[in-house]
Amino acid sequence: MSAGATHIDHIVISSNDSAATASLFAENLGIEIKRTMSRPGTRAHLEFAKLKEVILEFAGPGEVQPYDEVKAKLWGFVAAVEDIGAAIAAVRAAGFEAEEPHPAIQPGAVFATVKTGTHGVPFAFIEYNVLPVPEGS
């Protein structure tokens, strides 16, 4: 059994000020920020760009704390799969730990983090078109 990853869905760049880092990438590199999201309850401020099929996600705290300098790093990535249940089962069958799939921020999608067996890479699966999408999403 294999996890059957079809492509890299998104890559996460974490920052202590994600708006500032996204703005720097826009100014210095010409990367267009297409979407910004700050949802109450998520305690995160997210900004998104897209390079062909891969989303670049800038993730940081919803409330930016005082800092001396903005610090960002390449964090991890999310692989798209066609069957997240099978993907998680494959990881667990190999003896590693993965969380139960749960609704993702993306409407209709389901998400699960792989917690071990990734050689230090924060890694997760996402499957789209699993859940009903609320009107207006």
Partner: peptide, 13 residues
């Protein structure tokens, strides 16, 4: 923008 795509993620092991 002149970037074609994400070419790769480098992972040190």
């Amino acid at each position: 923008m002149s970037f074609k795509k994400i070419d790769h993620i480098g992972i040190v092991v």
